[in-house]
Computed example of a mutant assay.
Amino acid sequence: MNSTTGFRARIALMAAHCAGMIDIVALPVWVGTLIARFGFDPQQAGALATLFLAGAVTASVGLAPRFNRLRGRHWIVPAGYAISAAAFLACMRTSQFETLAVLHLAAGFATGVGLSITHGTVALTNNPHRLFGFMQVAVGVLGIAYMAAAPQIIAQVGGAGLFAIFGAIMIAASVITALAFPKVHPAQAEAAAHDVRPARLPKAAWCAMAGISLMNVTQAMVFSFMERMGADRGFTPPDLHVVLIAVGIVNLVPGAVAAFLQHRLDARNVVLAGATAQAILAVVLVSSTAFPAYAASGAFFVSAVIFTHIFTFGALAKLDPSGRAVSATPAMLMIGSAIGPVLGGTLVKFFGYEAIGWAAVAIDAVAFCFYLQLRNHTAPPDAPVIKIHPQT
């Protein structure tokens, strides 16, 4: 029986997190491939990515309130990723928008099931902030591999290669979690469901959820079109490939730094700085016609939301020790990410790339206001927490 303190269990949690967060590293190549290889316009390409993310949101919203009452979580996670793999592999056999839309929605729902349970399980560990930080480092490693390999594979085999890669990632997550995902003793699950009645979520928790959701609207809206933006401005494919790899390398840093600085920085200040930094990077990225400015802002753009997300995750774990709030992490992230691609595609289609930069400023300003609410709330230091231990 696995405990969350065990190496195998942590590897399983990291694998599940990486597969579930594939959008954070894949969106530029994903949307770019749908446009360049399938002939969809920016609005259609953004809509397909949005459908995947909308499916994940739907699953997370349904599961999060029931997280403590779910039995057999250690089997639900691998099953979810297996279904997601099947949906992505089916995408290889069609280029019809309607069929791809249904398959994207199904893949997103199944992925959201696995990711929601994964994040809820992380909340029950001894140090959710630190573990989540290192899970984000794992996403950075995946990002480097993906950005290095995906464009080459797609260039050789065509658009179907994109879905083959997604399918392979989901299969790997399904196998690893089937072998090592941690599980709760039935008696502990019963206690979590009945003996400990979590209080209603405080206002600050809802505000933190809204803040990170809005930051993910900006992240998905801008990042989805980063590759197309550069191509339309005349930057060469090798240059763009270097930028995408740089994104993956830079994304290794925020998780480790956030884990190290957990007790050195006040999360309430970090989230405010994160929203501000994201808005600035977005404006620089969309307005840059010179490659150095485009490359620098693009390389660091995703890291702003990753770093902020880790501190938001840690704050939510303290505000709600039951695990419900962080179990809703896929919903709070992907509801923003789901809106972003189609919103960005619509703005680009009618107003050009500069429009998504100014939209980012407006959205991050609202996120900043939500995050301000955290400054008036401190999590209770001795709130009850249900931990996962080995079954005896």
Rank of each mutant, 00 (worst) to 15 (best):
G158Y: 06
N216L: 04
I153F: 14
A168K: 06
P238W: 13
G211Y: 02
L179K: 09
F225I: 12
L179N: 00
W206P: 00
V222G: 12
H194E: 06
V242C: 11
A178H: 05
G159D: 02
V184L: 03
F181Y: 07
V175D: 01
M229E: 13
L179D: 01
Q156I: 14
M229D: 12
V157W: 09
I165W: 04
V217I: 15
S224K: 02
P238K: 13
P237I: 03
V243E: 13
A164C: 07
G159T: 09
V196E: 04
V242P: 10
M215E: 06
T177E: 11
A210R: 00
K203Y: 05
D195W: 00
F225G: 05
V184P: 09
I176V: 14
F223L: 04
A204C: 02
E227G: 07
G158Q: 08
T177M: 09
V243W: 11
D232N: 13
F235C: 07
Q188L: 12
P202S: 00
P182L: 11
T218E: 07
V222T: 15
Q219N: 14
M229R: 14
Q188V: 09
N216T: 09
L179E: 01
G234T: 06
I169Y: 06
A193N: 08
A155Y: 07
L244C: 08
A173T: 12
L240H: 11
P238I: 06
A155V: 07
G159R: 13
R197N: 06
I245E: 12
M215R: 08
G167F: 02
F235P: 12
L201V: 03
W206G: 10
M209E: 08
Q219C: 08
A210W: 00
L214M: 11
M209K: 04
A191P: 03
P186K: 11
P186E: 09
A172E: 02
L162N: 04
L179G: 04
S213Y: 08
P237S: 01
A187E: 09
L244H: 12
V175M: 14
P182K: 10
H241K: 14
L201A: 12
V175K: 07
V175A: 13
A193F: 00
A180E: 08
A173P: 10
K183I: 04
Q188S: 11
L201R: 14
I165D: 11
I212E: 07
L240E: 05
A155D: 15
A187L: 03
F223G: 02
L214P: 06
V196D: 01
D195N: 04
P186W: 09
M209G: 13
R233N: 09
A168M: 08
M209T: 06
R228E: 12
A189T: 10
A191L: 09
I153W: 11
A220N: 13
I154L: 01
A220Y: 03
D239N: 15
I165F: 02
P202H: 03
P182D: 10
M209N: 08
I245G: 12
Q156Y: 03
G234L: 02
L240C: 10
A193G: 03
Q219G: 09
R200K: 11
M226A: 15
R200M: 07
K203E: 00
V247F: 14
K203F: 08
A199F: 00
V175S: 04
R228Y: 02
